[in-house]
Design a protein around this nucleic acid. Structure first.
Lengths: 205, 205
DNA sequence: ATATTATCCGGACCGTAGTCCGTTTAGACG
DNA sequence: CGTCTAAACGGACTACGGTCCGGATAATAT
């Protein structure tokens, strides 16, 4: 299994000096710990940058120096599970990983993504909201490219890039969470609907 | 042509007394005029509620009393064009209106929606953003139901409601605008891709 | 004309995300 | 160990959306 930790979840996370000053590292750990505590207690929406700074015992400027924005913090909190998800659909066992036909991989990708959103949805939503270019975040670009790749593997002729965009839109965390939480849609129905959708899109060629 | 102005763009816009106090009406006109001015000068994103109040010569509380929120203001500004759009796809001439086959109407709906977003996109985006339940706004529900109706008319068997949700996601203003403005996608490609998508979804039955 | 009342008005106030800049300090170098 | 500097720190500050409530006023009843 390759190490895929080089796939950054947010832009610019690899810039700057390689080494981190000890106080910076200490504060980063404090902040991440405090953030997880606060989310445990108040939910993702209940985490404010002021409270986080207070809980971690650092200044507010330090929080923004570390993570750039609230969305950046959320992405950092998601980065482990996100890297795991990426590893699974890129290098893991089929049908999610390579080895299965494109269509099966597409279906599995949607199912895995839906499961991911159901588990980490609040964080993902918080990471998206108020992120001006949430569509250009490296992770989002990677999902998009992956779908496009699978479409091409299935012989998609008509504008695979835009087809991938359309399919990506379907998996938007905000929409999925809204369907489940507000309208009480069963996750299984979402997966089944995704299967129908991608099957028709691919077969229609 | 029917009068479809009864289709509210935002929830609650029909509640309360039928008559409006004269000073309230005067201030509403002032506010709408000032809002259009500000958007002309600074763009939709440059319109802040404080500046709007100042420009209109009213207190800030009055702005929120009128429109409830920034999103509500944006919806009010969109209500004329939105009512027109609704009238066209519900009662207008085919292929957008009734009289054409479901698939053709679906294609026309997407094309019309894309054109709409290209014209009023900034406002639509501003109306969506930070609106907690943007998916349950009456107008959005109407679009969704319309797509679902057309899918059923084409004999869609598998969960037309969720299929309609997936197709709606594709027409999200934020995504469309992002594709056009950031990635420079030609609107014609968007329309063509929509045609491919709905054709495959419908025919795949 | 006067009194009554429901509605409306205004701007002070709050919580939040994000910025700024003077101060502190880790760590490298002599 | 002392010096130096780039990096990190912290919290006051701004801008914004949204709330609140005491005072003003338009419509209505008498």
């Amino acid at each position: 299994m390759w190490d895929v930790s080089f796939i950054p979840l947010r832009p610019g996370s690899l810039s700057g000096p390689v080494t981190e000053r000890s106080d910076a590292a200490r504060n980063r750990e404090r902040l991440l710990g405090a953030a997880r505590e606060l989310i445990e207690e108040c939910g993702a929406d209940g985490l404010t940058m002021d409270r986080l700074a207070e809980r971690a015992g650092v200044g507010k400027g330090t929080v923004f120096r570390r993570f750039g924005s609230r969305a950046g913090l959320m992405m950092t909190l998601l980065s482990d599970s996100e890297a795991d998800f990426q590893a699974r659909f890129m290098f893991g066992p089929p049908p999610l990983g390579p080895g299965a036909p494109g269509l099966e991989r597409l279906v599995a990708f949607g199912a895995a993504r839906i499961a991911y959103v159901l588990e980490y949805g609040e964080l993902a939503r918080a990471a998206d909201e108020s992120a001006y270019n949430r569509f250009d975040v490296p992770a989002a670009v990677l999902w998009h490219r992956h779908i496009e790749l699978l479409l091409r593997a299935e012989g998609m002729d008509a504008d695979p890039r835009l087809m991938a965009m359309a399919l990506s839109a379907t998996l938007d965390p905000e929409r999925l969470l809204h369907a489940v939480r507000v309208h009480g849609i069963e996750p299984g129905r979402l997966v089944e609907s995704w299967r129908e959708l991608v099957t028709r899109v691919v077969r229609g060629a």
